[in-house]
Structure formats: structure tokens, C-alpha cells
């Protein structure tokens, strides 16, 4: 059995360790997702995600597979965020627009939030200097520019970029589950 199915079984059993793992893996990205929907009332994102996860625990929600668990998380957070906006008296048209705009599963069947999650978890675990260099690289900065901004040699920038990519290669398949 795959690790991902182990964690689902543990969640179904109500194993607290599995829930701790959910925090490490999903909490931050779900809050970012909620906040992107909430826009103005940003400090609600954390509360919404807390409620969603605690509700799984309290209601002893069961999941058939890892992917149904993921779908549930993103959908539940999205719906809770939309509800929050509705309660604040937003116009129906606006809610409709948000519902369309923030479907976690794109019409193409791709979960964009899941891309962010994997990408961010990988970046987050790079050593500090390596990470700053890689972020500038992702912003489209050239090696020379990065070297100037961070006061490093171009050689150092190149080595650190290589290190970042080697780390990502080594860990990306694990990042599906573990941080």
C-alpha cells in the first residue's frame, strides 16, 4: 500500500498523528487559498481552515482515497470562504463570479492549488540562501542580476541554483506527501 493510503486510513481511524501531518502538508496552502478568495477579510483564512480540519476530526469524516481527501479539503475550504463572504452580504453576482473563478479543479481537471502546494513545499525546504536565489530565478532574473542584488559572485549563484534543482529532483516525488 502507498504511504498516501496509509495516511488516509489513519485519518479515518481518527489518529492524531495523521492530523498533525495534515497541518504540516496542507495548512499553509489552504490558508493562502482561502485568503485569495476572501480578499478583503484576510485574517479569516486561518479560522476557516482550522474549522475545516477540526470538523473532519469532530465529525469523524471518512475518505475513500487520498485523492478524495484532497478534493474534500480544497472544496470545503472554498465553500466555507464563499459562505463567509455571503454572510457578509455580498451580492449574488459576486458570489457566482467567485464560485466560477476559484474552483480548485479547473475545467481541465487540474488542481492548480495542488501545483502551488507541491512547489511551495519544495521551495520552503531549501536552505535560506539557496531559496532566495531560486525565488529570484523564478521571477525571471538573470544570473548576473541575482549576483548583483545579493552581492554574490555569478559562480555562487550558478552553484546554488544547481543545488536547488538537485534538491527538488531528489524530493519532488516525496513532496506529494511528506515535507
Amino acid at each position: 500500500m502507498k504511504d498516501s493510503e496509509h495516511i488516509i486510513q489513519a485519518i479515518n481511524r481518527g489518529d492524531i498523528e495523521a492530523f498533525k501531518q495534515v497541518y504540516a502538508l496542507y495548512y499553509s496552502v489552504l490558508v493562502t487559498y482561502a485568503n485569495s478568495i476572501l480578499a478583503d477579510s484576510e485574517d479569516m483564512g486561518e479560522d476557516i481552515v482550522q474549522d475545516v480540519i477540526a470538523n473532519i476530526w469532530e465529525a469523524k469524516t471518512q475518505f475513500a482515497s487520498y485523492s478524495s481527501f484532497k478534493t474534500y479539503l480544497y472544496n470545503a475550504v472554498r465553500n466555507a470562504a464563499l459562505n463567509h463572504i455571503k454572510h457578509q452580504g455580498a451580492a449574488d453576482k459576486y458570489i457566482e463570479y467567485l464560485q466560477y473563478e476559484y474552483t480548485p479543479f479547473d475545467y481541465s481537471g487540474v488542481n492548480v492549488e495542488e501545483i502551488y502546494r507541491q512547489l511551495f513545499a519544495l521551495i520552503d525546504h531549501l536552505p535560506y540562501r539557496c531559496r532566495e536565489i531560486f525565488l529570484l530565478h523564478m521571477e525571471g532574473k538573470r544570473n548576473e542580476e541575482i549576483a548583483r542584488v545579493l552581492q554574490l559572485s555569478v559562480e555562487t549563484v550558478k552553484t546554488q541554483k544547481k543545488r536547488a534543482m538537485a534538491y527538488i529532483r531528489a524530493n519532488i516525488d516525496k513532496s506529494l506527501l511528506y515535507e
Binding site: 495548512y27 499553509s28 485568503n35 520552503d124 525565488l135
Partner: peptide, 25 residues
Amino acid sequence: LVARYRSYAAIDEVAAKRRFLARVY
């Protein structure tokens, strides 16, 4: 993307986990 990562990184999931544990225990 990078700005989104920065706000992601600013979220303290460890404190959130502690809050969760206090709630369910």
C-alpha cells in the same frame, strides 16, 4: 507566484497545529 509563496511562508502552521490540538484535546 513568488508573492504568493511569500504569503504562504508567512503562515505559521505549527502554531495552528497547537491550536487544533488544544481544541480537540
